[in-house]
Design a protein around this nucleic acid. Structure first.
Lengths: 155, 155
DNA sequence: CGCATTTGGTTGACACGTCAATCTTTTCAC
DNA sequence: GTGAAAAGATTGACGTGTCAACCAAATGCG
């Protein structure tokens, strides 16, 4: 077994910062959403996705595809959101297996109130703090790292 | 209430990619660790942290400080790791409240086997795929975004 | 038609993190 | 010393995600 190439001190620093960021940013987003709207990131994603489609309702499987989530993850979250009164579910008209998802009144109110604040958070933290050049750099960098992960078949 | 500045199409794209990355990279890391060593990211962090200190044992609170985790998170994970036989706990000699954490034999074997592969993953995905310049750019960008989040008191 | 397979979705067990409450030992002011 | 407050750590309830097993409706092939 060849000795692995350990990280240099500099690399270690970047790696630590990177890992902290990977944990910290999503947590911050969660806190912002929860504080301002009582929503989790997942709940926000669902409300945003469903409110974004034209007919105002969505099949649960399509939702999973849109969000790139596992079916069961969607199912669990929808159950909790239904019990909170954020969404409504009924069997699909065309396919007896399917579930039609739509927002309740409360769901609409919630997403309408939450969206501006959440977009504000994203804009202020991600876009206002980075130049256009840096945004391009970030995109490039994410793409490369993602590519390397995909190559290893771990994405 | 002023109409928020919504995201442009370009911004939306970066934002989506960013969010996917924030979810995807840690998941990939988890998969790598679990596949190669049967460890979760958290378990790896604990083994790495404890194995890194000179005396080979650590107070649970110091571990929490090192990892920047909440005490209860550490406590829960240590309980699970102890039941798996990865670590051992005993009351601290100098302070009856404290817990001394040390790796079991199995814990040592596990971290010794896991570390090279994990470092390999990090190196191949993060460092080999980015130029030195890009690594610097990434560091700058993360710092700026983090700063903006900190300013909003959400980090 | 009839039955196996596929597809849409749910469920249960479990790992993980957070928060608030709790417990015990230590500290410290008097 | 003694009692209140602080410090170290655990616990329990709950939200969230994964995986594997499962159920029911739809499909499709003989």
């Amino acid at each position: 077994m060849p000795e692995p190439r350990w990280l240099t001190a500099q690399e270690q620093e970047l790696w630590l910062e990177f890992r902290e960021f990977l944990w910290g940013f999503p947590s911050a987003m969660d806190r912002q959403l929860n504080r301002d709207s009582g929503l989790s990131t997942g709940e926000y994603s669902v409300l945003a996705a469903v409110s974004d489609v034209a007919p105002g309702s969505l099949r649960s499987g399509d939702l999973a595809a849109t969000l790139q989530w596992e079916r069961s993850r969607v199912s669990h979250l929808l159950r909790r959101m239904e019990s909170k009164g954020l969404i409504e579910r009924c069997v699909a008209s065309c396919d007896g297996r399917g579930q039609e998802i739509k927002l309740s009144e409360a769901g609409w109110d919630t997403i309408r109130a939450a969206a501006p604040q959440h977009v504000g958070f994203v804009r202020e933290t991600l876009f206002d703090s980075l130049s256009t050049t840096e945004q391009e750099q970030l995109r490039t960098i994410l793409g490369k790292v993602r590519g390397a992960v995909v190559e290893r078949e771990l994405w």
